[in-house]
Design a protein around this nucleic acid. Structure first.
Lengths: 362, 362
DNA sequence: TTCCCGAAATGAGACGTCTCATTCAGAGAG
DNA sequence: CTCTCTGAATGAGACGTCTCATTTCGGGAA
């Protein structure tokens, strides 16, 4: 049984109130008493019980973040940003991995709530399953900021990237290289950002005066096997084969490349390729993969800022939501083909940026 | 202010004890009372206060893990394993990132302790700074299992890989390919496992009858710039240039490759290369990197097993420590050179394994 | 010496939950 | 109708901390 303040008080020969004052440093305590208490702390190897403290003060100075898969490099980078912002403001950040399961997500949500953390960041695993009713049950009058994957139809604080604009930028770039048959391979379309990225794809083609072909929109997922089937199907067919491929996220993109490589196709030789999200160290490997790079650190950082703002305000104006939308960047490497031939040998990062904006809506 | 059991009791017209029994499901409660309480829970949107519960029961069913850098893919994989084992046994796992700072590590350690989590996994950021005295102050009579980077001179439960043996295996493989000038680039040697891996390097050379050359042991770090300097220095000098390079960890290995590529050298053309740890998706990129692969998931999983065992036992026999040492695997890809030329085109993973063992010492 | 004042110390009470000894209600036996 | 027994319900008390109204103390002024 760990020692308590009461035992400290007995040993130091002072009252429990004095001990508490020494520990929390609130009121003035005479130097003599303070020393006696500090000595007792040393002797008993006392560690304050934050549980009891939280119960009394009703504060935990702790935030939580629930993400769907910690092994996807995208999320740790977000966590870093969030952690950084939290620390700067004197909060701790707790990380939980829902492993892509909506049930686990709900459990974790409930757990963190029950632990009385003060607010949460959420990258949901639920997609469209997260209905407004379900949402209300989970989060009513609890501060939550959604990141990256925004639930559909939910009015909520959020931080994400300009998915549509970024996808449009990538497709425009491919068109600029002369491509006309551009396919897109998606992740699960139950996720709002996947939908947005497909929208950007369509928009770019339309603006470029190219008809959107049904047969070039490949509905994929995060599963290697499924993506492989869809991609090989599309790339190996005798007619209507695209000259370029755009993947709407890094996991799907890596799966697509892997599957096409395995049947002897390669990029940029056989097809131009761009993916949303970075794949670790792709500035180094060959071929380098042209990517839509998201400001991951900033996303986490901003999300915590928004969350703390929400917490401060409390419920006083619960209806006004903050929606932050950050710009993404296109980093051009070998996989997107031709134009790179002109570039210098070192690291050729032609960068373009979507217009970023932080909008506040009612 | 969230609703409490007392309010539930009032609304449901039963006593607080009955409410508690319904919620924790311990004692028998009549169906009528149960329904009234459940209804009240729904109406008030009640969420139990785990803080208060923990205070009373002195249990949190929560474990923690502190790691030095969540953006290194190695750690998320360990977390996955730990999380899995924890869940199977009804525990939650909280993740904290010390960002490589011993001070932050101490803080987080203290925080988790103060939160009365029941045990901790630790991949220390401290290296040799973690003296026995410091350790005692932090962890006295608190269950901790160290992972991967074991503090020097500390008698403590631990799970790690057979670092020495795995390094020896990698070097032997290179020697088997005919290499005689083999350099090693290390991370910070304040870390025990880095030392072990260098030991394995020496051991392999000695067994093969090759003299260990001072000038081929390159003392590096986790910093890109420092590693670049050391590697370029060693590889570009006019004489005594090695034909093979072994990196003792993935971060350093990637930094080394990057720096050598940037000066026009490449593997396996100019030098054979093996690194400890995998680099994401290297089965896919070209050149594929030959790697010493650690059983990351198992490490996390086993660590939680060891931790829970320690927790169960409590202090009853505090002196007997469990030391688990898992086997690592060599996955051969292009970067290690010659023999691969013979191999098939697909994915050539010649695997070797170190002898693994789980030892229990006093 | 007495009185007063401010600083320092005190300790009871509350936070929300669980526990457990006690009380209660109802059914069945006599 | 009373007594007994059993299962259900009760509610006071404790967990470790902080708060705050109250008390104590010591020194300076009168």
């Amino acid at each position: 049984m760990p020692p308590t303040q009461k035992e400290l008080a007995k040993l130091a020969g002072v009252s429990s109130g004095t001990v508490s004052n020494v520990i929390s440093g609130s009121t003035k305590v005479s130097e003599r008493s303070r020393q006696k208490v500090l000595e007792a702390i040393r002797v008993l190897n006392y560690h304050p019980n934050l549980i009891a403290r939280s119960l009394k003060t009703n504060r935990t100075r702790t935030l939580g973040i629930v993400i769907p898969d910690i092994t996807i490099p995208f999320f740790p980078k977000i966590i870093r940003g969030a952690e950084c912002a939290a620390r700067e403001r004197g909060y701790f950040l707790i990380v939980l991995d829902s492993e892509g399961s909506p049930e686990r997500e709900s459990e974790m949500f409930a757990l963190l709530r029950a632990q009385r953390i003060e607010g949460m960041l959420l990258v949901t695993a639920s997609g469209e399953e997260l209905t407004p009713e379900k949402w209300d049950a989970l989060s009513s009058s609890f501060p939550v900021v959604c990141l990256d994957r925004l639930p559909v139809n939910l009015d909520i604080d959020s931080v994400c990237v300009d998915d549509c604009g970024a996808a449009e930028m990538a497709i425009s770039y491919l068109m600029g290289c002369g491509h006309k048959e551009i396919a897109v391979i998606t992740g699960p379309l139950s996720l709002r950002n996947e939908q947005e990225r497909v929208r950007g794809y369509r928009q770019a083609l339309q603006k470029g005066g190219i008809a959107v072909q049904r047969s070039l929109i490949w509905n994929g997922s995060f599963e290697q096997d499924e993506v492989a089937r869809v991609c090989q199907n599309g790339m190996l067919r005798p007619t209507g084969r695209p000259t370029a491929l755009f993947a709407t996220n890094g996991v799907t993109g890596l799966a697509a490349l892997r599957s096409l490589y395995s049947v002897g196709l390669s990029t940029p030789k056989d097809f131009a390729f761009i993916t949303f999200d970075e794949i670790t160290a792709e500035d180094f490997f060959r071929p380098g993969i042209t990517s839509v790079v998201q400001p991951t650190f900033d996303m986490g950082y901003r999300a915590v800022e928004v969350l703390l703002e929400r917490i401060e305000k409390g419920k006083e104006d619960g209806s006004r939501r903050t929606r932050v939308r950050l710009p993404a960047t296109l980093t051009v490497r070998e996989s997107s083909g031709a134009p790179l031939a002109l570039a210098a040998s070192k690291e050729s990062t032609a960068r373009r940026q979507t217009r970023g904006r932080a909008v506040r809506t009612r």
